[in-house]
């Protein structure tokens, strides 16, 4: 039977076991759901929210219909951008501009939260004050990971972000590789950057049989540049450790994926497009939600095939 290793994305999360249960439930939800347990498919979660946050979120904000995982309470301290060395500063400024995070301070809200949003109309694009909050978190997480920054989620705990997360990925992928059947990595948001980095650049990382990236920022121009020299456009596909397909699922109105979300143009195999991009139409105001992606029929069909029918 197959095995799935999940890698979650940005923002704080509930404890690891709850998060895994929630993702499995979202995937199983409804008539055409994929119930991993019923199919005998084992799974694990590469959990890294504790690397960035002092304690787990008490209740998930990402399971409701139109949940948005940011509020004024989730704002992060922007002071980390104050004293970056030149190369990093340049990356962060370019990335911030691309993400629409133009100031180091998150813009004041026209109300405290999402209450001012019109419930009857879909907000496309996402209101600026929400987008800024999400992108501020994404910017920090991407930077801290790509530049292996020190981060102190709790007093007295300083963690090298990339090093720590890479170790966790390798450990979980090793566990998965010991299971019988195909081993598929399903990653979301910042988790897709982590998955790609490990498969492309970490020698200890065991090979896997399939990769699904969901709501990924990997097609944002600034990110593959940071994978150089291991990455080139013509040899971006992580062929050494990805033995099967790479399916990238996006929603055009997901603010994380960017204006041109197709990854196959940046991650070719021997100069030829090899990854598959799928446009999954989510709904509501918050299109980055993993719950919504997991209910998408195209995603489910592709994942079903990757898991062996």
């Amino acid at each position: 039977m197959a095995h799935v290793t999940f890698i979650h994305g940005i923002a704080n999360k509930p404890p690891a076991d709850q998060l895994l249960t929630q993702w499995e439930q979202d995937l199983a939800y409804g008539e055409a759901g994929i119930d991993l347990g019923t199919r005998g498919i084992t799974s694990t979660m590469v959990y890294w929210a504790d690397v960035m946050y002092p304690e787990p979120q008490s209740a998930t904000l990402e399971s409701a219909d139109d949940d948005i995982p940011v509020t004024t309470e989730t704002d992060i301290d922007p002071s980390w951008r104050d004293e970056l060395p030149g190369e990093q500063k340049s990356f962060v400024e370019t990335m911030a501009e691309s993400l629409g995070v133009t100031n180091s301070e998150v813009e004041e809200l026209p109300g405290d939260d999402t209450e001012d949003m019109d419930d009857t109309l879909e907000r496309i694009p996402l209101p600026r004050f929400i987008k800024q909050r999400v992108m501020a978190i994404l910017l920090r997480d991407v930077h801290h990971y790509l530049f292996n920054a020190f981060h102190a989620p709790r007093p007295g705990t300083a963690i090298r972000v990339q090093e720590e997360i890479r170790d966790r990925v390798v450990e979980k992928l090793q566990l998965g590789s010991e299971q019988p059947g195909p081993h598929i990595v399903v990653s979301h948001s910042m988790g897709t950057v982590i998955a790609y980095d490990c498969l492309k650049r970490v020698p200890d990382c065991p090979p896997v049989d399939g990769l699904m990236t969901i709501g990924s920022p990997l097609a944002r121009r600034e990110i593959p540049d940071e994978f150089k020299p291991d990455w080139t456009r013509h040899d971006g596909f992580p062929s050494e450790r990805l033995l099967g397909p790479w399916v990238n699922v996006f929603d055009h109105f997901d603010p994380v994926v960017g204006a041109l979300p197709h990854i196959k143009r940046f991650y070719e195999k021997d100069g030829e497009p090899a990854a598959v991009d799928i446009n999954e139409q989510n709904w509501g105001k918050w299109r980055h939600s993993i719950s919504k992606y997991f209910q998408g029929p195209l995603l489910r069909r592709s994942l079903g095939v990757m898991l062996g029918g």
Binding site: M1, L36, G37, T38, R39, G40, I41, T42, G309
Partner: peptide, 12 residues
């Protein structure tokens, strides 16, 4: 008829 064996994790 199913083609799969469920997972043995005490939750099925």
């Amino acid at each position: 008829l199913t083609a799969f064996r469920p997972r043995l994790d005490g939750k099925q």
